[in-house]
Nucleic acid binder design. Structure first.
Lengths: 196, 196
DNA sequence: GCCAAAACGGAACAGCGTTCCGTATCGTTT
DNA sequence: AAACGATACGGAACGCTGTTCCGTTTTGGC
């Protein structure tokens, strides 16, 4: 989708070496900034952490979303790949779904502001939104279908709605001791089972 | 909490009549702007709709949150007041809780962006946040307690977590045909019942 | 009609993401 | 080694927020 598909690995041979180095530095700076101030850390902070101008940042990551994607790509991929393994290992598809969603929730909750930005209808984050959905929606759908086939859960909630719901429940979970997103997601997943 | 407690009714006698008129006009402009562009309509739009300067807007409503509160105050109050009535009328406390939450969800879903702004950890919306919680949390707690006393639901979800969860589930419900917040909230409320 | 008190309007400020372009560096070619 | 075109850099500037501030205007009791 964009040129930052592979972080700043050795994949982009044709680029100048200062460009490769800057991209790498920017990624490290972004990781640090996101950790310190959340995903909404100002671009200027990230650029100055990297000792680089704004122009440089924007050439490598045309939008905030691209930078966020580059930072979290590996973790999202790991989450996606865990799906089939969980399905194979768990006692029931519903248990696998629960475990997979827990994985997703753990990821979201530990990234300050990521859940919020994921759901933001602000254009400019569409790329981020799309990436997450492209990667995770098929996995979620597979688990959901398996649970439906096993007649464990209701059939009127599709994978997209479920993922968005789980993502939404994670919003604000980090900066609010009185709000237990994990438990609430657990309740939601319980509710998926056929009503009595 | 602030001087806009009563919209722009005849309550504030001591104010100059142009001030009263402007406040009323601003409220109408805000209603129109929120309807047209969502709760995040720029203050400048609202001021210019009202044919009034920015200073005037900010004198009457010291922050965006105050304006939003003034616009939705009556509907929030109505929702709060519906709680006890539903509890008295419904077959079971859990049914009353479900109906009350449906009321709340209907309110949120029809106000573009309100759910998002309600959950935003952005300071400046704390007033809004506080008002909603002050008004609705006791009602939710009453319904929740009743359902717990009737041994209908689990005891590990408190009113605050539930309300925030429901609010979160409503985020983005307006601008996303593929996302069914109402149904998802229904699933969550189902999940509140004791696990099998 | 006078005049303080009250309210108004909008320029100005701070902070955001993003764009743009003159300048500096790189790496190849001579 | 020198020169040169392509590539990349830096940061001022733009457009958009919400909010503050203060010179000017309006109001309403005397």
């Amino acid at each position: 989708m964009n040129q930052s598909d592979e972080g700043a690995g050795p994949g982009d041979r044709s680029r100048r070496k200062d460009a490769r180095r800057n991209k790498e530095t920017l990624l490290e700076a972004a990781v640090a900034a996101f950790l310190a101030s959340g995903v909404n850390a100002p671009v200027r902070d990230i650029a100055s952490r990297a000792g680089v101008g704004l122009g440089t940042l924007y050439r490598h990551f045309p939008t905030r979303a691209d930078l966020i994607i580059a930072v979290y790509r590996h973790q999202v991929d790991a989450c996606a790949e865990a799906g089939p393994a969980l399905l194979a290992a768990a006692a029931t598809p519903h248990a696998a779904l629960r475990q997979w969603i827990d994985l997703f929730v753990d990821f979201l909750v530990t990234k300050h502001g990521l859940a919020a930005v994921l759901r933001s209808d602000d254009s400019g984050f569409e790329g981020l939104h799309t990436y997450f959905l492209d990667r995770l929606l098929p996995v979620c759908a597979e688990l959901l279908d398996a649970a439906i086939s096993a007649r464990e859960i209701r059939t009127d909630i599709d994978a997209l709605t479920l993922m968005r719901g789980v993502g939404n429940l994670c919003i604000g979970a980090e900066s609010d001791p009185g709000y237990d997103a994990r438990r609430l997601v657990g309740v939601l997943v319980d509710g998926l089972r056929h009503p009595r």
